[in-house]
């Protein structure tokens, strides 16, 4: 069965390592915080200016002056630090953040990503996404495999305006885990439980690389 958004987040959490500083984008990536393995120290960055995002606050602890990049009220963990957005993006641009997890509208087989604009329809802006994808050491995309019209989001080339080029390393969708290989293509690493390779092939427009028996995801 294909994963739901929590399943995608849970699978991505397995990519975390002890001591990582991680930036989580809006949407499915935010849910990854719920699945950080017990005993693992991972520091979450909010690009508006905080290292050490904690859980959502209780009603009586809500503070309008403490929000994440999705403008949600949050709390801070012990050891948190606050700073300006210039310092925050210095951390990002300077390569001090180990992993960026973000959503996408399209990813191409050479690792280009589009997630900020649909010409003539939606112009929200790129926010911090262009800075993050241009500089993060490791970028994982969390997204649906196909859009709401059933069209594949894993493409030979992106059709929408790009957010960054040659930057996505790994993609986790409801159907599986895919590595973007340097020579171009989506290498299938894992299938979601009960999902066949045939289903993955049918939903992927870009070049799919199947090198061996593909294992099912384990949690």
């Amino acid at each position: 069965m294909a994963l739901d958004k929590n399943g995608i987040a849970q699978r991505i959490a397995k990519e975390l390592k002890d001591g990582y500083y991680v930036n989580l984008g809006i949407g499915i990536p935010t849910l990854v915080a719920n699945y950080i393995p017990e005993g693992m120290d991972v520091v979450l960055q909010s690009e508006n200016g905080l290292l050490g995002i904690g859980p959502f606050p209780t009603e009586e602890n809500v503070d309008a002056d403490l929000i994440n990049a999705g403008k949600q009220t949050i709390s801070m963990v012990d050891g948190s630090v606050l700073f300006s957005s210039a310092d925050s993006f210095g951390m990002i641009r300077g390569g001090h953040i180990d992993l960026t997890i973000l959503g996408a509208m399209e990813v191409s087989e050479n690792g280009d990503i589009a997630n900020w604009k649909i010409p003539g329809k939606m112009v929200k802006g790129m926010g911090g996404a262009m800075d993050l994808v241009a500089s993060a050491k490791n970028i994982i995309v969390a997204m649906r495999h196909v859009d709401k019209y059933g069209k594949s989001k894993l493409l030979p080339e992106c059709s929408l305006p790009l957010t960054g080029v040659n930057c996505v390393k790994k993609i986790v969708t409801e159907l599986g885990v895919f590595e973007v290989v340097p020579e171009g293509g989506f290498k299938v690493l894992e299938r979601a439980p009960g999902v066949s390779l045939e289903e993955i092939k049918n939903s992927t427009a870009g070049k799919l690389i199947v090198e061996e028996e593909i294992p099912e995801m384990a949690f």
């Binding site: 690009e47 790129m126 262009m130 800075d131 241009a134 500089s135």
Partner: peptide
Amino acid sequence: PQGTLAERIRAGGAGIPAFFTPAGYG
């Protein structure tokens, strides 16, 4: 891009007329 915006403003205050960033390349 948000980091570019923050840095353009920082540069303005710090007297640096321009800088290079990877954000938005391509």
